[in-house]
């Protein structure tokens, strides 16, 4: 299920900048553990950010996105107090959703 994301969103001059930090191992499937066994691939495949109910970013990740993925992007509009909702889904079918208000 994972740990909470850290989402920050700020509006300046009519543009909202969103920064998301996600807690996820992002295993490539190529790393070996201390016993020499391959650690299976385990990574976020999709991440979607919404402003209120509108999708503002739809991402697809491969395993070469870093551990604890970070994303920063900007969209036009958004007002103080509006909701930013971010959801991800990984290759094992696990998901998580967190939200934050635009500050």
């Amino acid at each position: 299920m994972g740990n909470p994301m850290k989402i920050r969103a700020a509006n300046k001059d009519g543009v909202t900048e969103v920064k998301v930090l996600v807690s996820h191992e992002m295993e490539t499937g190529q790393r070996k553990d201390s016993a020499g066994a391959i650690v299976p691939a385990w990574f976020i495949t999709e991440l979607i950010a919404k402003h209120n109910d509108k999708v503002v970013l739809a991402s697809e990740f491969g395993p070469s996105v870093s551990k604890n993925p970070y994303l920063a992007f900007k969209f036009k509009g958004g007002a103080k107090g509006d909701k930013i909702v971010v959801s991800w889904k990984d290759n094992k079918g696990d998901t998580r959703t967190d939200e934050a208000a635009i500050g």
Binding site: N3, P4, K6, K19, V22, S23, K67, Y70, A72
Partner: peptide, 15 residues
């Protein structure tokens, strides 16, 4: 520094 991965631990620690 912006989006320091440590920020996630901070959130986890708070919980």
């Amino acid at each position: 520094a912006d989006g320091n991965p440590a920020d996630l631990l901070e959130v986890k620690g708070e919980g």
